[in-house]
């Protein structure tokens, strides 16, 4: 048992977490059909802005989760690789964290996820530059401001009050639906119990019609996530960089 030194924060804090995380996700690529339900569910849950055709063409779209796919071979023996939902891997040792001059992207010691503190962010975009997974998106404009995007005047009624509406000039990314984590923990605490496995889940996992995404505690060997991870055919993307990703991909099938 390693002892935790609370003075080790930020970049060094990652070492603390090396052994185990807290929240984790397993994505079974063999089940993913690329249907994009997770993408829109995430957008609706987390007040993610849409940027319009032109900005989307510049690569400014704000997806926190995207579905990647690659091609192999040429017609007629062409094959698409498994769809690969890509989101923030909530690295235990995140490359984005040490480069932030404003300490706006830091490691949460209590939830062991990588958090983006919007009010600290000054928009240097160093973190996005240093993220090997390219999952951070930057607010180039006030897309969610009704004075700039008139449609927001009515669309804002849908905004989730549990999630900050981001403004221009800051970075954002998947938070593992931390608002749901807090809500579930708060509810459990008020009832004097622990959060049960499967009691709540992230918006993407909740929507996924193929049950390809599973979310839960990786430090609890009884949880579904831990059991799936223990099956042994999971991979963690770019783990050779030492990032300690908390998302495990199962690549079954062929």
């Amino acid at each position: 048992m390693t002892t935790i030194d609370l003075n080790m924060v930020g970049a060094k804090g990652a070492l603390v977490e090396a052994a185990e995380g807290k929240w984790g996700m397993v994505i079974d690529q063999d089940l993913c059909t690329g249907c994009q339900a997770c993408v829109t569910a995430c957008a609706m849950e987390n007040n993610i802005a849409f940027v319009g055709e032109e900005d989307a063409g510049y690569g400014r779209s704000m997806h926190w989760i995207r579905i990647e796919r690659f091609w192999e071979g040429h017609y007629p023996h062409v094959k698409m690789t498994h769809y690969q939902p890509m989101l923030c891997q909530q690295c235990g040792k995140a490359p984005c964290e040490p480069v932030c001059p404003a300490f706006a992207t830091v490691h949460s010691q209590s939830e062991q996820v990588n958090v983006q503190v919007y009010n600290r962010c000054v928009g240097t975009r160093y973190c996005g530059n240093n993220c090997p997974y390219q999952v951070r998106s930057f607010n180039w404009f006030d897309y969610n401001d009704e004075r700039i995007n008139k449609a927001i005047a009515t669309l804002k009624h849908q905004f989730n009050p549990d999630v900050t509406v981001r403004r221009r000039g800051i970075m954002e990314k998947c938070s593992f639906c931390i608002q749901r984590i807090h809500k579930a923990q708060d509810k459990a605490k008020s009832e004097g119990r622990e959060v049960a496995d499967g009691e709540f889940t992230t918006a993407c996992a909740q929507a996924c019609p193929a049950d390809a995404i599973v979310f839960g505690r990786v430090d609890n060997p009884e949880s579904l996530v831990s059991q799936l991870m223990a099956e042994g055919h999971g991979v963690q993307h770019l783990s050779e960089l030492g990032t300690l990703p908390r998302v495990t991909y199962l690549v079954g099938g062929q």
Binding site: Q109, E111, V115, V117, T164, I178
Partner: peptide
Amino acid sequence: NPELEKKLLDCATCHY
């Protein structure tokens, strides 16, 4: 209380 400290001084407790 190190456990409580972890929770109460964490950015993610209030900012997300």
